[in-house]
Amino acid sequence: MRVARRSRSIQTVVTLDLTVPGLNSNGPRRELQDALGEAVRVYVVSTDRRHDCITLHVEVAGQTLDTVIGALAANLTQATLGRAKTISVRR
């Protein structure tokens, strides 16, 4: 008896850290969804009350690094981009 293997696709995911002013993540989350689509995942990494900013970890599937950075530069003008990379995920 043969066991059928389920084929898995490889998906490209752009991950990056983003620091934005303010202590509430609701506004930046909406701006990220408007700029990158509904498939964006956003996680709060840290809150810095002294400097009045938060750091977000952002994951965007199915887009290139250049596209993501361009959308961020156009829509989140006060954000500071941290480490950004593209990874491949087998799903």
Rank of each mutant, 00 (worst) to 15 (best):
M1I: 04
R2W: 04
R2D: 07
A4N: 14
A4I: 08
R5E: 09
R6D: 08
R6F: 13
R6A: 13
S7N: 12
S7R: 10
R8I: 11
I10E: 10
I10G: 05
T12Q: 12
T12V: 11
V13L: 04
V13P: 00
V13H: 00
V13R: 05
V13W: 03
V14Y: 00
V14F: 02
T15L: 05
T15P: 01
T15K: 00
L16Y: 07
L16D: 05
D17Q: 12
P21K: 01
P21V: 00
G22N: 02
L23F: 06
N24M: 10
N24R: 13
N24H: 14
N24C: 07
S25I: 01
S25N: 05
G27P: 04
P28I: 12
R29D: 04
R29G: 06
R30D: 12
E31P: 02
E31F: 08
L32M: 09
Q33H: 11
Q33L: 09
Q33K: 08
D34Q: 15
L36Q: 10
L36C: 13
G37I: 04
E38Y: 01
A39H: 14
A39M: 04
A39G: 15
V40R: 07
V40H: 10
R41M: 15
V42W: 10
V42P: 11
V44Y: 06
S46R: 15
S46C: 05
S46T: 15
S46K: 14
T47F: 09
D48Q: 14
D48M: 05
D48P: 12
D48T: 13
R49K: 09
R49W: 13
R49V: 08
R50S: 15
I54Q: 14
T55K: 12
T55L: 04
L56V: 05
L56S: 09
L56I: 12
H57K: 11
H57N: 12
E59C: 09
E59Y: 00
E59Q: 09
V60F: 02
A61W: 03
A61L: 02
G62R: 03
G62F: 02
G62N: 11
G62L: 00
Q63T: 09
Q63W: 01
Q63I: 02
T64M: 05
L65G: 00
L65C: 04
L65P: 01
D66C: 01
D66Q: 09
D66R: 11
T67L: 03
T67K: 14
T67F: 03
V68K: 02
V68M: 03
I69N: 04
I69P: 00
G70E: 04
A71T: 01
A71I: 00
L72H: 01
L72I: 15
A74D: 12
A74H: 11
N75G: 10
L76I: 08
T77M: 02
Q78F: 07
A79S: 07
L81F: 00
G82Q: 02
G82K: 07
G82W: 01
G82R: 13
R83L: 14
A84Q: 02
A84V: 01
A84K: 00
I87Q: 06
R90W: 02
R90K: 14
